[in-house]
Design a protein around this nucleic acid. Structure first.
Lengths: 160, 160
DNA sequence: ATAACGTGGATAACTATTGTCCACGATACA
DNA sequence: TGTATCGTGGACAATAGTTATCCACGTTAT
């Protein structure tokens, strides 16, 4: 199994949007260009993020996307869940439970273990936020790159 | 993303094989029947388990499969890895690193976090073994079901 | 010899993911 | 009020990954 590439792209999109000043907005096509993603499919990802209440979309000319909450409040997990959905990594088929005659009991053998494993995975993703990644960028990124990107965004963004 | 159903089936197969007495062997078709899996595809899973050194296969008439190591030595993770392969859940595309001008450095922003999350997930799967699940079965399974299954296996198995 | 079993490759069916297209509604601006 | 720009949602196509089938082959017990 592999995580969808959309999760990575979405997290990067969120990161790009942290560069936006208040009330600024970035068109979806510009974001997808920066990430080298297919524009039309990327719009679908953005809509998922809007549905998950992570982004606000502004329709019409001078429209675009903006973070709904502050970067500190957006966990990496929230983005993950918005794209991947809420289904768990493991779904018991129930065949073995049948074989063992423990259909209706709550001893799930594997399920418990898998659930615990998935919670470990998720808890790591819940610990870090978009802001904590952004801070790492500020620390490790060459300053000239940062300012270049900043000015590119200010050029392409739209104020309302 | 979803875990392959083959992982679940493989773990159940390993559990079934713990019922085998020493030097006994179970044909692949019998195992797949018990698990309600497609016989031909299930053989492929069994071969993966053989390649991963978890099972021993005996060819020829009276052939079949048997655990290679004792159940205490086989971690759930080993089965998971045998079926899913060693590729990690997340593979960085590198686009964002390019955008930020940090291509060659080892600050990986997301990668570190994802790696850590995956290790959490894996460590849970490394903690439990086929034997620890088998013990749970012995504790929670109705004794008559257990003896019925045991005698079915003794009937279908092949001694060498 | 022959029947029963595992092996590995080729290939097909199925499913999920990714990508495209288009008609539509909303908004800014001339 | 018209037009250009943008997001929306649905239908659909392309691609990739997973599951399933088939077959010719090697091995072993009888």
């Amino acid at each position: 199994m592999q995580m969808k590439t959309g999760v990575e792209q979405s997290i990067y999109a969120m990161l790009l949007l942290t560069f936006l000043p208040d009330k600024g907005v970035l068109p979806g096509e510009f974001i997808s260009q920066q990430l080298g993603a297919s524009p039309t499919y990327f719009q679908k990802l953005l809509r998922k993020l809007v549905h998950a209440d992570l982004l606000i979309s502004v329709p019409g000319a001078k429209g675009g996307f903006r973070l709904k909450a502050s970067p500190e409040q957006i966990r990496v997990f929230d983005v993950y869940e918005a794209i991947e959905g809420k289904q768990s990594l493991y779904a018991s088929s129930g065949v073995f439970e049948d074989l063992m005659g423990i259909q209706n009991q709550n001893i799930c053998l594997l399920s418990d273990l898998m659930t615990e494993a998935e919670q470990s995975w998720q808890s790591t993703l819940k610990r870090e936020t978009i802001d904590s990644i952004r801070r790492e960028i500020y620390l490790n990124c060459p300053p000239d790159h940062l300012t270049k990107l900043q000015s590119l965004i200010e050029e392409k963004m739209i104020r309302n």
